[in-house]
Amino acid sequence: MTTETLINLIQLAVTAVCMVFALHTAVKRESREWALLGLFYALFFMGDLYWSLMLAFYGNTPSYFYVSEIGWYSSYLFLDLLLRQLASVEEKEYRPKALWAVPVFTAAMAVFYMQYGDYMINTIVALLMGFLLWRSIRGLAYTGSGHGTAADAARRRIYLCVLAFCVIEYCEWTASCFMSKEDVALLYFAFDMAVTLVLILYISALGKAVQE
């Protein structure tokens, strides 16, 4: 069993367990927030599963269409909906100027990744990551500035998790551009494991945010 297969299996198991937990909680509490997190996990899981099955049965990654990418990037969409759902009205109106660094960063990274990959996919990723980074950094800035209530402060964990998730994903994608070097490949797998750990942390972070 290769390192990649092992990490994929761990990530599949983690996302499957988290998906069942989040969807079950969503139904039990009739909570839209948990439903959105459950759908995030479900899509992440199915994107991973499709990718792993293609590797296992056909020995190569999908070559005609972006089925796994549809799963992964739609999962970002649900994460973005979750952050939007959690934010208070005041928080949505809070726009420090530093936030404009986010679209600049995501656009620059997209241009860099386009040297290695597809234009369309990288544009979509830049947009989705832009929204996630924007909302998480805005949430952290708002709750850290002392403007908010106790309920606002309770959302800090989920914002931290999303920020960590985005940063690690960017590190992983950057490492994947130089995968031919052995030490970089190890770094890539380390980032993949870090993503898996952050995926687990979402559960407790949302629990705290919704409880308050």
Binding site: I70, G71, F78
Partner: peptide
């Protein structure tokens, strides 16, 4: 906004589910 983006995301869920079934 939930209805529009949610529908997109749910169609994506159906696509990946269908694709996983077809592989198996």
């Amino acid at each position: 906004y939930l209805r529009v983006t949610g529908t997109l995301g749910l169609v994506a869920a159906a696509i990946t589910y269908h694709a996983v079934y077809n592989i198996l």
